[in-house]
Every structure is written in C-alpha cells, then in structure tokens.
Design a protein around this nucleic acid. Sequence first.
DNA 1: ACCGTTTCCGGTATCGTTTCCGGTAAAATA
DNA 2: TATTTTACCGGAAACGATACCGGAAACGGT
Lengths: 336, 336
Amino acid sequence: MKHVTIKDVAKRLNVSISSVSRAFNDKYDIKKETKELILKTAEEMGYFPNPIAKKLSQNKTFNIGVVVPEFINEYYSEIIIGIQEVFMAHGYQVLIAQSDEKPEIELKNVKTLIHSMVDGLIIAPTMDSGNMEYYLKELNAGYPIVFMSRVKETLEASKVYFNNKKWAFFAAEHLIRQRYKNIYYLAGYKSLNVSIDRIEGFKRAMNKHKIPKENYKVIETGLLAEEGMQVIEDLIYNHDLPDAIFCFNDRVAMGAIAKLKSNGIKVPEDIAVMGFTETRMVDLITPKLSSVKQPTFDMGKNAAELLFKQINNSLMEPQTIVLNGELTIRESSVRN
Amino acid sequence: MKHVTIKDVAKRLNVSISSVSRAFNDKYDIKKETKELILKTAEEMGYFPNPIAKKLSQNKTFNIGVVVPEFINEYYSEIIIGIQEVFMAHGYQVLIAQSDEKPEIELKNVKTLIHSMVDGLIIAPTMDSGNMEYYLKELNAGYPIVFMSRVKETLEASKVYFNNKKWAFFAAEHLIRQRYKNIYYLAGYKSLNVSIDRIEGFKRAMNKHKIPKENYKVIETGLLAEEGMQVIEDLIYNHDLPDAIFCFNDRVAMGAIAKLKSNGIKVPEDIAVMGFTETRMVDLITPKLSSVKQPTFDMGKNAAELLFKQINNSLMEPQTIVLNGELTIRESSVRN
DNA sequence: ACCGTTTCCGGTATCGTTTCCGGTAAAATA
DNA sequence: TATTTTACCGGAAACGATACCGGAAACGGT
C-alpha cells in the first residue's frame, strides 16, 4: 500500500536520488547503462514519479480549467472533447465546471479553479456578466485565460467564437429566397452576446432584401424547447403567425415544431422552421430540420491551442479566432 | 505575480509558520485573537493555502476520477453532474475522462488517473472488458473504486446500477398488454451487460404471457440512431416486420421511427415503438415516444456517496445499489 | 606528460504545507 | 505557597520531487 518513492529506488541501487530523477527526465547527463538499470528496477518496484511533488517543485499543476454554462447538450460536450484532445496529448488534465447559466456560479467556479492552481482557464461565459472585470484583472496579472463561444468582439483577450452574424444572415436569407414573406426570429435571450449578433445578422438580411418592418419580428424566447413551445402558443393565441420561423437553436425549433404540429399546423407547408447550432436530431425528426452547423470540436481545439501557447509564453498578443459553419437545408424550410 | 506563501504572512506578523497554518486549519491550539489577526492579514495579502503543498503533505489530492464511455449524450452528462454535486460539496475536484466505448482507452484513462493520484475512481465500463482483472487488483490493494451503470451483478465491489431486467420486463409487458403480437427487441450490443439483462427481462415477459417463440425476436443493433435505421431497413427488405418494436435506447428508437415513417409505415398505427433510457426528446417528436426513464442524476449521486465513504474508510463492505425507474406511456406505443 | 573538455554522479537547497515535539507562561489546583 | 495543568506558540522534520553546483573520471589532442 505504501507508495514507492524516489528514495526507495535510489537506496535499492545505491545511487543518488538525483540520478534516479535524471533517469526519468532524460535531459541531464546520465550514462545510458545506469539510466536503463534505474528505469528497469523502478519498473520492477512499481515506482513512478509522484506528480504532486513534481507540481510543487515546478510550480505548475499541468491542470487547466474549463468553465461552461452546461454540458447536458452536445454543444459544449463536443467543445470539451476538442479541448481534452489537445491538452491530454500534452499530459494535462482538464477540470470541467459548469455554471448552470448563472454568473455567480461561474465566478465561484473560476475562483475555485484558480485557487486550485490550474495553469490556465478556458471560459464560455454565461450571460453578459459583471464578472468580466474580475477576469480582466486576472488577465492583466498575466493569468492565461481564453474566452470561448459567447464573447464580445471587442474583448481584449484571446478568444474563439462563431461568426453568428454571418450565419444568421445566411439562414435568414435562405428563408427569404424561399419566398417566405413573414419571418419571425425566436431570439433566445436578448442579453446574450450571441443573440445580439444573430439578431443583427437576421435584420441585415431583412434590410438587404427590403422586407418591410411590419413583416418581420424578433421575439425573445429562452434556450429551451419548452420556451419555443410557449412562444408558439402565444402567437397562435394572438392569431399572429408568420409563414417562417427562424429559431435561436434546434431545441427551440423542435419545441416550436411540436407545438405547431399539435395545433394542426403543417411544417413546412403552412410554416417553415429553421434551427441553429445543429444537433444530431435534425435527421430524425419530421420534417428534417434545416439548421446551421457550428464547428464545436474545432472551437474546443482552437481555444485549447491558444491557451497552450499562452501558458508556454509563445503567444504575446491576444489572438481572436472567428469560426465559420455550414448551412444545411432540409425539409423544414423548403417550398414543395 | 509571485505567489504569497505562508512564510510571507508569518514574516509580516512576526509569528511562526505553524501559527499561520493553525489559523487556517482551526483544529490546533491558537488564541482566538491571533487567529483572527492572521486570517485578516492573510486576506489582505491575498494569501490562500497552496493546495498542491497541502496535497503533498497530506498524501491526498482531493481529486477523484470518473471514466465514462462518452458524455455526448445526456445520460452520462447527467450522471456526472450528480457526481460533481456530491464531491464539490466536499471540496473535491472531479476529473472526467471518456473511453469512447473502447476498453483499451478506458484502461489507459484509469491508469493515467491513478498515476495522477486521484483519491478514488468511479468507472462506467464500456463493453465487458478484460480490464476487470486490473481493476480488481487495484481494489484488492485497497484502492477505492465504485462501478456504475454497466456492471455485472456478481461483481465483488461497490456498484450502482439500474434494474434493467425489471424495467425491460415492464416495457415489454406493456407492449403485450396493448395486444401487440409480434414484438422485436432491438437489443444494442449483446455483449453489453445491460443488454444481457434487458434481453432477459424482455424474454421473461414473453414467457410469462406465453408469446410463442416464433412471434418475438432479439436483434442486435448498436447504440446509435443510424444502426436503428439500418435494422429497420433490413427488416423491410426481408418483409419481416413485427407490429411492435422495443428499442435499446431512444436513439435507436428515433432512428427506427424515422426509417419507418420514410417508408410510409405509420407509428403506432402500423407498428408501435418503445424506447429506453428516456431523453429530453421524447415529447418533441411525432409520435411522442414511450420510454423508460432512468434516474441518471441519482445514479451519479449514489455512486459518489459510496466512493466518498470508501475514501474515508467509513464503508467496510462493498455495497450494491440497484435503482428503479419510471415507465411513461406516450403516443408511440398505444392502440388508438 | 600535460591540459582542457566531456561525461557522469552525489549532495544539498528548495517548493509550501502539516505535524510532531518541546518549551514557556499563565491558570488552576492542592 | 508550591505544584500541576492548560493554553499557546515556535522550531524543525517530514512529504517527494527537481535544479544547481561542484567534483571525479574518462578521453583526446598536442
């Protein structure tokens, strides 16, 4: 049960502790034979360098922290996998915390992670939180942080995000090209940075194609299917139905479709629906859902690589990476 | 940038290191006033105890490891959230690794985690792997491990799992009670422990209700929607369609439904479909999917609590917790 | 034979904490 | 008043590794 330490190995072979250490980190002078002998007996004795001790003496934990709003949905799960792939290859452990969309919890998580001495942080902020001041303070103190996904363009820090404006524009334009005349955008939370950008993209498409102001609308929903359903219910109640709906995400879209169908409204014959942030479900529902795919995996990888560079001081200036996606038209948004 | 250490605080107040240490872990003799003074100035100086050093001297990392097959789907995500809730409340960090359903990667992850000195492990094994010997060796050496979800009943270790037999039985019985006569079970991977149990539950229901052997079938699929689609395609090709289908999970069920619908076969009018391991999607698809809900969150919490007890030596005998679920009948499996 | 350069290795300080041990002074007891 | 407790505190030894320093041996060239 007792752990084998470097001393035990040294004593066994009558060599010094230093020699054993050198054998394991082969950057120093050591004779090939002694090195091999040491490694061999260490193996036999079941010795491996104690990572905690290593962390202490090097003042590095080889841990990084990731704070996301949630990872129930595949979006952040996939991002995390991208991050893990990069960092595990470098021998790092990735600590994951979720803020449950609450800025207070996010801040608490960040502080916990910093206190547990992670070498760097990747943060996907919740709503546009007051936490930014705190993060910027840490950044200025030289702490490596990369922001991800829900970030302001103007933020003075390394960041990776999706070009929401552009792809919301494309999605909206697609609906216009399909000759839908009344288009509503179910916009998620308006206070979310990504929402603001997508609304802008949506409006830009409306303007470009000279859709009159009274023919489109931006309606605040939430992020959940239930909230999509609620909005549709309200619209039905108010006899205020458009002929096309563009949704903040696939969940909202699926909620909307379900509610429309249960009211005998056909998709896309009566009303077209377009999702966003494509999920695996798009092909499995009827009608198949048009959506914009985000490169989740790449977002994680890019953020991780930026952070890794920052940790190793090979990145001097904050860098921004803006990612593009893919618009796939399926059944839910086409005229027959 | 330089970290404030216990020494700095001690020097500042002209007290000994020990006193500062005592102030932070209030189990030793220390005068109330000195303690408060120390804590106050420490706060001012921005000092907090270096967790790494603490880990080293206590020979504990306050980290635990969790190895799951994947966390793209909500099932394991929710379990992980349950685990995190318990351990974060005790000041632990949770390290998450995924095996991508591959036993080799699972073993590699477990070894990495053990080498990084986690205080305990929670493992949701992939397929019935040869790794068990290794795990049992570690268990016998006194290493705290709790198994979860995909476990053999007979395993001599602490474990938490869902009563698959029972609830597969209930699900199958429901289909029988709806007067479906030909029932096929799309069984996931047959080598999976949970599969074996669900098959047994399924067959038990068939036997109890004296369904003739030629009227039911167990077909191996995988875990993915695409694999459900593939099986349905084969059945259609072979003109071998039952009047009810029970699926290993909701993904397979949704794949099956999609394929049936695209071939003009109506669900549930022509063929009923039943899922398992309920997902959030059940209410959003047409028809709404009947399924068995597993208490994912509780599974995580229970596993975590077992592990926590093991770590603190307050659990002498391995303990087994078998969880029950909830069968919700929706549109996909009822006669009109 | 002499010297300089490599190659190899051991000793020791250091990292930041906890914990054990011992000591002093005040308080409680006889 | 004399003696024993108690409360409080400081010193120093772990914990397990790495980094630095300096010394010894080996080697090759003149």
